[in-house]
Amino acid sequence: MLLVVFDASCKTSSQVVLNDILMVGPTIQEELYSSLHRFRLHSTYSYERSALLNVEELATVLVGIEGAINSRPLGALSQDPSDGEALTPGHLLTGGPVIAAPALRTPDQAGLSFLRRWRHVSSVRQTFWRRWSREYVLGLQVRGKWHEEKANVEEGQLVVVPEDNLLPQQWLLGRIVATHAGEDGKVRVVDLRRSDGAIFRRAIHKLAPLPIC
């Protein structure tokens, strides 16, 4: 497969460099290093000397973390109510969403020491995913002051629904199909449709609406 690469530092015939005229966009998410550093400093996971990761295990954990960060939803791909897919960094890197590898079978025949190492690596990945995904969804939620009026959510919006029992690189997305307002006219609860067509209900304070890309 051929990959066309453009040298943005090369001067054109008019002596203009593309890097000098590009508009620098905002940082959508913190860098990988800062995320790992915060996880290392504030994690409550107890590390023992025998539980330290070797080079291969650390590489496995880092690749899993890279996949999790590149799978985060950035915004809705369209306003189509039947489209439940979100734009992710994976779309920009590979042209499609990052697909998580299937969970491997527990190596019960490899010996107790290998089984313990496999569980340890899986635990480190799951711990990072659980903490980081929760913090990312909280960052998407706009929380204004109590005396400031906010616009109601609308039907057709794509939202992220926080769930604690999801596997790494899995995000629960839903389209709002119905809103339920209180006596003051403010929407408190909405009905959501998943990509598989299932309908479920959630309170709006548990949702993180995604912008249209």
Rank of each mutant, 00 (worst) to 15 (best):
L166W: 09
S122L: 08
A178H: 08
D164F: 06
R40W: 06
N70H: 12
G174D: 02
Q15Y: 12
S43N: 11
V63I: 15
Q109L: 08
R193E: 12
L3G: 05
L74M: 11
V4W: 08
R143Q: 10
G185F: 05
E31M: 11
I204K: 03
S9K: 11
P209C: 02
Q169A: 04
A51H: 13
T60N: 00
P81C: 10
G96F: 04
G185N: 09
K186W: 12
L167A: 15
G197A: 09
S13F: 05
P211W: 09
R117V: 01
R175Q: 07
V177D: 00
V5K: 14
W132Y: 05
A203Q: 14
G64H: 02
S43E: 03
D20S: 15
H120T: 03
T12Y: 02
G139M: 05
V98M: 10
R194E: 05
L58F: 10
F128I: 01
R202T: 05
V61W: 06
N152V: 07
E56V: 08
G185L: 03
I99F: 07
W132C: 01
L173N: 04
L172K: 11
L210A: 11
P211Q: 07
R143W: 07
S113F: 07
G90M: 07
L207M: 06
P73W: 05
L158A: 08
D80L: 15
W146L: 12
H180D: 08
S50Y: 09
A151V: 12
E135T: 11
A110I: 00
P168I: 02
D184W: 03
A101L: 00
V16H: 13
C213K: 03
V160I: 14
I176N: 04
I199S: 06
E135N: 10
A101C: 00
S122K: 08
R194H: 04
A103R: 04
R193I: 12
